[in-house]
Design a protein around this nucleic acid. Sequence first.
DNA 1: TCCCTACTATATCGTTTCGATATAGCGGAA
DNA 2: TTCCGCTATATCGAAACGATATAGTAGGGA
Lengths: 226, 226
Amino acid sequence: MLDLAILGLLEEQELHGYEIRKQLREHLGLLANVSFGSLYPALARLEAAGAVEAIEASGTVPAKSTAPPTGSLSGEWAVLRSRGHSGTRGRRSRKVYRITDAGRVTFTELLGGAGRADDARSFGLRLAFARHLAPQARLGLLERRRAQLVQRLGEVRGATGGSALDVYARSVVEHTADAVADDIAWLDRLIEVERSAEVLTPGVPAPEVLTTVARTEPTGREGDNQ
Amino acid sequence: MLDLAILGLLEEQELHGYEIRKQLREHLGLLANVSFGSLYPALARLEAAGAVEAIEASGTVPAKSTAPPTGSLSGEWAVLRSRGHSGTRGRRSRKVYRITDAGRVTFTELLGGAGRADDARSFGLRLAFARHLAPQARLGLLERRRAQLVQRLGEVRGATGGSALDVYARSVVEHTADAVADDIAWLDRLIEVERSAEVLTPGVPAPEVLTTVARTEPTGREGDNQ
DNA sequence: TCCCTACTATATCGTTTCGATATAGCGGAA
DNA sequence: TTCCGCTATATCGAAACGATATAGTAGGGA
């Protein structure tokens, strides 16, 4: 989930952890407010998996070979400090990450349903990076999400109908249901736009892009755990 | 978070794990779709903390003293099976939980802001159980949530304004922002209702209910991690 | 009769995420 | 000159998730 977000950002530019978090807050603000307690472990995980690689400072620094991890780091820091860097001054040693070819493969897999979890965050993230998907995969993503929301809305509206909830609980349920209905209407608009676009440019698959999407396999019977 | 949901349900009736999950799915459906992987550990945690206690079967069964945990359980099961139980037949051994006095205290604390986390789920849960709060505490809950959403909306709308997002990312951000705006409007309606009710019955604190709410203490500067 | 599926029910495992906290450098204000 | 606020990374324990195992009962069909 976080992996997708990180790889998606690194696909466009090299970034360090702090900056990744800032961009996520700005771009996807309310959707993904990631904490450092998830971010740094995620970066370490991706680096260990070979999906990203760390480069010393911003820009292309000679890499200093493999510097001793402990000991006097002040030497390296001095180098970083002395170097003229773009934008604001006064920062601390940072690790800038770059996506690898393997990372791009992983990103594509995650975008196309490989990574489990179909909550709102996950979908929002996938849609935010939907430009990397082929038109048909994009459409599939939207339609699967729509079907899912319709089903869940039906369950809730059905189950809640007769029960005796007090004002507050009822208000929460109804407002949540309304919000889901709004989501569906939004998806409908997006789907329509996608279909129009598809009619205009039929059978022209974009290069370097996912053409198929992993279907939600029928085992497990919907959102049920276990 | 889950603790609050569990205690809130047990406040009304004795339940076993499976049933708790069903009720959460039905009542707060889209809000809290809890998995067993969180539920059972949470129940165990609450039991260890003395907030809930397990009673053998549904109704009040003699408890069989402390039966040997391993070995032939078929004896106990036979007892359970032979017993006429309300509703559907054909179930398996179950652990029915009851809230304790300590649990009620914990519940009240959690309702009144003690448990951190002010995400949508947490707030929705608190509001769903808001009948257990005193009018002024309820109003405080709504107003704090409102202030929070207004601030976050401002941040996102501000930051996103100039940046160059593609259609998809932009759509996600805008739709999310709209949803938050809807939330705020909803809160406004609720707040108005609360205020009207308060005018009608001024200075009449409900008994057995929270009269104050723990304020979000000023350390930590809003949603920021670390 | 027997098997197979579906449902009720609890438990555990590994992974991810979260929130809190520690550490550290730097610039500017008091 | 000291303190505050910002940038920046890291780690820890707790909580939640998704998957999976286990176990019993009921009902349907071959």
